[in-house]
Amino acid sequence: MHALDGLAFDIAAGQRVGFLGPNGAGKTTTLKILSGLLHPSSGEVTVAGFRPQARAPAFLKTITLVMGQKQQLLWDLPPAETYAMNRALYDIPRKEADARLGSLVELLDIGDLINKPTRQLSLGERMKCELVAALLHGPKVLFLDEPTIGLDIAMQARIRQFIRDYNEAHGATVLLTSHYMEDVAALCPRVIVIDKGHLIYDGELKELVHRIRPDKRITIRVSTPADPEVLARLPNLVSHTDNQLVLSVPLPRVNEVVRDALASLAAIDLTVEDPPLEEVMRELFASHQQKRQPA
């Protein structure tokens, strides 16, 4: 019984990659192997030219690991003290550390927080300060394990934007796991999906969506409830209430269905989008399960 089995992928420098899978799929295990905290029983791992398991100081200075559920900030001291400590531990020249700290603090707008004891900060403020601690040594490879867990929508968006900015400004490689599909959709052009330690998809996110759910999702808001007769005529009704209908329609038929709906319904609003990522993933895992059943 292996936690991971036959998992193979390459990530080019500077890419942002989403790492997806249900609970227990092996995401955290993989991140721990990549950062040298776990040694694989067999197989090859290379990160930025290093063997992670050697945990060479030069390697550790190249990477960072952020875990949304754990923190490295000293609880009863202000974050500024943790930064001072990391500067010492990572042996960062003072000028470089000050400059980087200044720009990170400005990017995240936490100037008034870093001198307050960590315990007085809110969850979101703490995550921002945590990110600064994790990035102070200017790592080239970022492993982010659920960095937005428990945060509100606005704060999630803020953190996402920050990660994207950092990636673009420093050309850093980002490997991100998240329960929030929004995170992944907004940040990662490429996704790697694993389940029970097996790779089940590696490629563009768009491509994944189209392959699993080629249909588009049409949402129509109506001012008066639709006729039962009209309802019966509409293709693939996903759900309907008195003032909203949701249809799932193959791409070639979208034009025709939209025209038809507008003509026969009292529509006040209409949107065409990809199906929710959550649904795509559910279906992907379900089909993967089925494939594995007979074996």
Partner: peptide, 24 residues
């Protein structure tokens, strides 16, 4: 390694002291 340690030590001492004060 040794030189790194010598540079890191004063900071570690200072923060250790700050923690002691926080937990007085």
């Amino acid at each position: 390694m040794m030189r790194h340690l010598m540079r890191a030590y004063p900071t570690l001492l200072r923060i250790g002291f700050a923690e002691m004060v926080a937990y007085r």
